[in-house]
Structures are given as C-alpha cells and as structure tokens.
C-alpha cells in the first residue's frame, strides 16, 4: 500500500489509516508527502490487526510554515511484529512537526518505532517534537524505540521523549482505590491510547471500525 501526497500552498490533508491485518498477513505501508508554503499534513494511523506491519512515512516540509502532525497508535498481540518509521525533513523556515506515538504490547509481540526529525540547514525557527509512550503488558514482549533528532541549523527547537514500561504505581493505586483491578486498569489505559486517535478522526464510521477492532483485541467494551 503506497500513498504519495503533494500539498500545494496552504492546503491541508488529513490522512486516516486504520489497519486490521489478518494473522499471518504482512502489511507494507508507505506514505510520502511534500508540503509547499503553509501546507499541513495530519496523519492518523491506528494499527489493530494481528499480522505483521511495516509502515514507512516520510514528509518533506520544504515550504515556509508548512507542518506535520502525526498521531500513531498500536496494540501488538500474539507474535506480531510492528515496525513503524516516521521521518520529518525540515527544509523550510518556520516549519513544524509533531509526532506522537503510543500503544500497548501484549503477549509476545515486538515493536520498533523510529521517529526522525531532521532539521536541514536553512530551516530557521523550525520546531519539532516527538513523543512515544509504550505500555508493556505481555511477559514476552520486546520494544525498541529510536527517536532521532538531526540538526544542521542553529535556530531551531527539537524535543523528543519516550516512556516505556508497565503501569506506574501511582496510576495503579488510583485505579485500585476505585475498585478497578490491575488487568482491567491496563486494559483501560491501552484502550485510551487508541480512543484518543479515534476521537481525532471526527468520523463516526471510522470510529466504529476502530471500536470493533478494539473489542477484538482487548475483549472489553467500555
């Protein structure tokens, strides 16, 4: 599956992908985008399937004040492999990128997330942020997170952060003090990372698809 997108001046594209691969299926997903002055890409990706996923998204922020906002969610299960790569190349002045990834890994699933914010020379006053939050639920899960910031321009601000682990004690205490056990609390938090994206789609049909996928993966219907 491949998607090439060229955004002309001040145009906005919202690309929503919900993917539900069957067990033993392999999904290759490639997105390329190029943004002219003032153009904006909003990418929402939800990976809820059982098959392996290889997703590569690259965006050229070449026009002044062009921007990217990428929100990515996943639930890994069984022995699934999820490999996600997102690249934001900042060449234009005052360009912005924001990459947020998050999800949960169950069973023996494996996930790699690589996010690259590349400030090329000339990307004056560009801003790039990326963040990933991974909830580790399975005894045999493997998580790799590689958030890169490459910088050849002085006047930029780049931040990245990552939080990886199980539910922290404070959150767990909060849930347990309200009668919600650990398993249910983990389920709520895993669901929340996807529900956030579902709401962002602002499309009822898509929200129903995501909701059905969540029921299948997490087994609860909140």
């Amino acid at each position: 599956m491949a998607q090439d997108t060229i955004l002309h001046e001040n145009s906005v594209v919202r690309l929503v992908q919900t993917q539900h691969t069957e067990e033993n299926a392999v999904l290759y997903n490639e997105i390329k985008g190029e943004c002219a002055k003032g153009a904006r890409v909003e990418l929402i990706q939800v990976f809820l399937g059982k098959g392996d996923v290889y997703s590569d998204s690259r965006f050229e922020l070449s026009g002044e004040k062009s921007s990217l906002k990428a929100d990515i969610g996943y639930i890994g299960q069984h022995e699934q492999k999820i490999d996600i790569n997102v690249v934001a190349n900042h060449t234009g002045r005052e360009t912005e990128s924001e990459i947020n990834a998050g999800g949960a890994l169950k069973d023996a699933s494996k996930k790699i997330f690589r996010g690259t914010i590349d400030f090329k020379r000339g990307a004056v006053n560009a801003v790039g942020n990326e963040q990933e939050t991974v909830l580790m639920l399975g005894d045999d899960v493997q998580n790799k997170t590689i958030p890169l910031i490459l910088c050849a321009e002085e006047n930029v601000v780049g931040n990245h952060g990552a939080t990886i682990g199980e539910l922290d004690d404070d959150t767990l205490f909060y849930f347990e003090s309200r009668g919600i056990d650990r398993e249910h609390a983990e389920n709520i938090m895993a669901r929340a990372s996807i529900d956030r994206l579902s709401r962002m789609t602002e499309d009822e049909e898509t929200q129903n698809i995501i909701s059905d996928g969540l029921k299948e993966v997490l087994g609860y219907d909140e």
């Binding site: 020379r121 580790m136 899960v141 998580n143 997170t145 006047n155 780049g158 931040n159 990886i164 682990g165």
Partner: peptide, 28 residues
C-alpha cells in the same frame, strides 16, 4: 549554523517490569 548536532538514542526493552524514560532537547 555551520555546525551540526545529532541525537541518536536507542532503547531495547524486553521485560514488561521495567520503567524507561528518555528526554532530549536541541536548541540554541
């Protein structure tokens, strides 16, 4: 802007019972 500064962190976590945090910032 003649200079260059890259940040390349990698985290490989193979147990759920871990707490791993990372933060980085580049600026002038």
């Amino acid at each position: 802007s003649e200079s260059r500064s890259d940040t390349i962190p990698a985290m490989d976590i193979r147990t759920k019972d871990a707490a791993v945090g990372h933060e980085a910032k580049i600026g002038s």
